[in-house]
Nucleic acid binder design. Structure first.
Length: 625
DNA sequence: ACCTACCCTG
DNA sequence: CAGGGTAGGT
């Protein structure tokens, strides 16, 4: 833990790290996309429908594990080909994204009028979006910088909301008359934020999808690109008259995507390392060594087709979601992070591990690798780091090896929140972490893998560390994960050595959290001591020697209930001794009326802190956690 | 100015 | 257990 760093530097680094959205980094590869201009021209309300219309309806892509995307696509699908499912769709979509209901002139829904309640809902959503469009913060999308600014402003607005909440809790009674209005405003504002973020997410997500589809079709059917480039007419042709053809193509889409993505894997890795090695002489041999560890070689040597099709696609979708839905997921939960970061790392179920391990023995690039090492500055360190953490250096950080599928779904939240939380706040919502059962992909990485001193560790050391510590050795692929992340971190440092400050901020927040916890524990301890000391005095105990602390003592039970509720830890005898001494100190001080002094406890603290014991080694590792 | 302990509140 | 105010130390 490094607490001696310049705060201002760290703050500036970390804050900008976390407050920036990164469409600029994510999307450079899309700039050549012919969809870029139409995207920018679409209104807020129409863009989703337009994009969805362009998107090939691949029902196989609809995976329950990816509810967000599935609902988006399902909405379009059902609108076109299965009106009977409208009502069920509505119930599903309602809580997901209002964007799904927003349509334009080409919407098939026009041909099939919606039920009244759906129309009302649609009108409501459209109205909200119109309000957003008219707000000062609202802008047309398709411009990365603007998205960036929007996201930042939304965060600021959320912070402002949070600030308002905080102020409302203050005993300032003058706010009473307007409190309900404030609540309404805040609620509405939050709703707008949610919608806005969801829109952004959907736009980016769909843009990625378009890019992928475009590439696929450009190879399978060069005319497709020509038709697409021809403009709206050809688009209508594809969407309307040629829908069947699209569907037929969609049958092969999954396989094609898989193949294309797989083909890109080795090429990208090779290119990246060639570029890196040619651009620097920094320890590149080591990095290559890291990337060619036997474990990784196994994966490299594996047949690309060995990637299960479903998994491959799921991975693809997951990747998209990983990046696109960070903000929206956070917005959907609409919760401040109020719970402590789980520092205890637990093993995920083995079955879950095995199901995802094959995909993450190594980074998986895709054609549209948003992060390119040749991409010129200005890239803020936070861009790179966040992107790496979201995508990995080759766009696949969303499927970390030690993340079971269930966590995979929440990975965007987890990743994003991890960094957000640790840098902005010192706490992380447990809901995002699977209620403390979250595997340690980020926990261990954040605390250990990215801690700068640890970065210097060789991968072998990390592996052995993982093996020694059962709370770190989550599964067999933990080592490769660490290697992967270690590698990513090193590469980050090529661009931004000052990432160190971000890491420092991370540690600072972790430290602050720990300080708070220990402070609370300590507080409870001394409160109990004072309480029982006064109780003894009140009960007429005259001799301090009459006050003892044993395992049967009420004091001990109270403390044990607090620290060791499950009673699964054998409290050392030494604690009883120290507790008794503490009690005596309090008794004596109170008896001597020293408690009239405001700092009378400090003398006791001084005495007690000298009695502290060494923490046993085994306790530090795992077995008592 | 910054950090921390202490204290209080919810 | 967390958040926040305050006081005191550096």
């Amino acid at each position: 833990m490094n607490l001696s760093l310049p705060d201002q530097t760290m703050h500036s680094s970390s804050e900008s790290c976390l407050e920036d959205d990164k469409p600029e980094v994510i999307l450079p590869c899309f700039r050549r996309n012919m969809y870029e201009e139409p995207l920018a021209a679409y209104s807020n309300g129409s863009i989703i429908s337009q994009l969805l219309r362009k998107t090939i309806h691949n029902k196989r892509a609809i995976d329950d594990n990816h509810f967000y995307l599935s609902n988006s696509v399902a909405a379009a699908d059902s609108g076109q080909e299965d009106q009977s499912s409208v009502s069920s769709k509505d119930s599903t979509v309602e809580a997901i994204s209002p964007s799904d209901h927003v349509s334009t002139g080409v919407s098939p829904e026009e041909d099939h009028p919606l039920p009244d309640h759906l129309q009302a809902k649609r009108a409501r959503v459209e109205n909200i979006i119109r309000v957003m469009a008219g707000s000062p913060n609202s802008r047309q999308h398709g411009d990365g910088e603007r998205c960036d600014t929007d996201a930042r402003e939304m965060r600021e607005a959320r912070e402002s909301c949070r600030e308002n909440k905080r102020k409302q809790r203050l005993p300032q009674h003058q706010e009473k008359p307007g409190s309900s209005c404030n609540d309404n405003c805040n609620t509405k504002e939050e709703e707008c934020h949610k919608l806005k973020e969801q829109l952004h997410s959907m736009q980016r997500l769909l843009r990625q999808l378009q890019e992928k589809f475009l590439q696929v079709y450009s190879q399978e059917d060069p005319e497709f690109v020509v038709r697409e480039a021809a403009g709206a007419d050809s688009e209508h042709d594809i969407i309307g008259k040629s829908t069947d053809a699209c569907y037929i193509k969609s049958q092969n889409l999954q396989e094609t995507l898989k193949q294309e993505l797989s083909k890109a894997v080795n090429d990208c890795i090779d290119k990246v390392f060639k570029k890196v090695s040619s651009s620097t002489d920094m320890d590149i041999s080591h990095q290559q060594r890291v990337c060619s560890t036997p474990e990784i070689q196994i994966s490299l040597g594996a047949d690309r087709k060995s990637l299960a099709p479903d998994h491959s696609q799921a991975e693809e979708i997951s990747k998209s979601r990983s990046s696109e839905l960070c903000e929206s997921s956070e917005a959907q939960t609409s919760q401040d992070q109020t719970e402590a970061l789980s520092l205890v790392v637990r093993k995920p179920p083995v079955t879950q591990v095995s199901s995802v391990t094959p995909t993450v023995k190594r980074p998986y690039p895709v054609h549209q690798t948003p992060f390119q090492f040749s991409y010129a500055p200005p890239l803020h360190e936070s861009h790179i780091l966040e992107h790496l953490l979201k995508y990995g250096p080759h766009s696949n950080f969303g499927t970390l090896p030690c993340m079971p599928p269930s966590m995979d779904r929440t990975s965007p939240d987890s990743v994003d929140l991890s960094w957000d939380a640790v840098a902005m706040r010192s706490k992380v919502a447990s809901s995002h972490f699977g209620h403390h059962h979250r595997p340690s992909s980020m926990g261990a990485v954040g605390v250990d893998g990215l801690c700068l001193p640890h970065v210097k560790m060789e991968s072998g050391e990390l592996q052995s560390l993982a093996e020694r510590n059962p709370y770190m050795s989550l599964n067999i692929s933990f080592g490769s994960t660490i290697q992967f992340i270690l590698h990513a971190v090193k590469l980050i440092c090529y661009f931004t050595p000052s990432i160190f400050f971000f890491i420092s901020q991370f540690n600072r927040c972790i430290t602050s959290q720990l300080i708070k916890w220990f402070s609370n524990f300590r507080e409870f301890y001394y409160i109990q001591m004072e309480k029982f000391a006064r109780q003894a005095i009140a009960e007429g105990v005259h001799d301090v020697k009459d006050i003892t602390v044993s395992r049967d003592s009420e004091l001990f039970r109270a403390l044990n209930m607090h620290y060791n509720k499950a009673n699964d830890f054998h409290v050392p005898d030494r604690f009883l001794e120290v507790a008794e001494i503490t009690l005596h100190e309090f008794y004596n001080a109170i008896s001597a009326t020293k408690d009239s002094d405001s700092s009378w406890k400090k003398a006791i603290y001084k005495v007690i802190c000298k009695l502290d014991s060494e923490i046993p080694e085994e306790f530090k590792t795992s077995s008592y956690l």
